[in-house]
Amino acid sequence: QEIVNPEAYIKHPLQNRWSLWFFKNDKSKTWQANLRLISKFDTVEDFWALYNHIQLSSNLLSGCDYSLFKDGIEPMWEDERNKRGGRWLITLNKQQRRQDLDRFWLETLLCLVGEAFGDCSDQVCGAVVNIRTKGDKIAVWTSDYESRDAVTHIGSVYKQRLGLPLKMTIGYQSHADTSTKSGSTTKNRFVV
């Protein structure tokens, strides 16, 4: 009789099922029509199968986004789980596309699928990377901008995981403020 080690054939389940979305900027179509669901996964192995199969963020055309959200949450402000939320925003300069973009995005994905924020991970909705000529952006979206303790815990763990210097600060903005702003900057609700 052969005894098989379950580690050899059972995939490692994640806490959540995740959906990866792709946005391609085609000005002849509506914003929603440009957004496509690529795939869903709920194991460590299936996460890597997808990640290893798709283009790195730094190879995408300007105007494209990847979004990774918990199953059932759409990557838009209007979703019920997002509309009272906000995002920790990382803005990158042009040099950082080559130096930092891909490793920051992978680290962001690992924080999400690995539930790196402990109990506060329940407030994480997803993350988005925007590829833009004027500067790329990465953001972690959470569900409630008024949950100060959870939001700041998520921000400080995230900043540490990205290896950002202590003297550098990152800001958290509510989607309500971002969607109603008049200028190019949105006020920070929190900074870490």
């Binding site: 890597w48 290893n52 690995g114 995981r161």
Partner: peptide, 20 residues
């Protein structure tokens, strides 16, 4: 409890042969 996986554990699976 929550299924939490740290980065090194997750990275260890990046190039594992696929499960069948």
């Amino acid at each position: 409890g929550k299924r939490q996986y740290n980065r090194d554990f997750l990275l260890g699976f990046q190039f594992m042969p696929a499960c069948v």
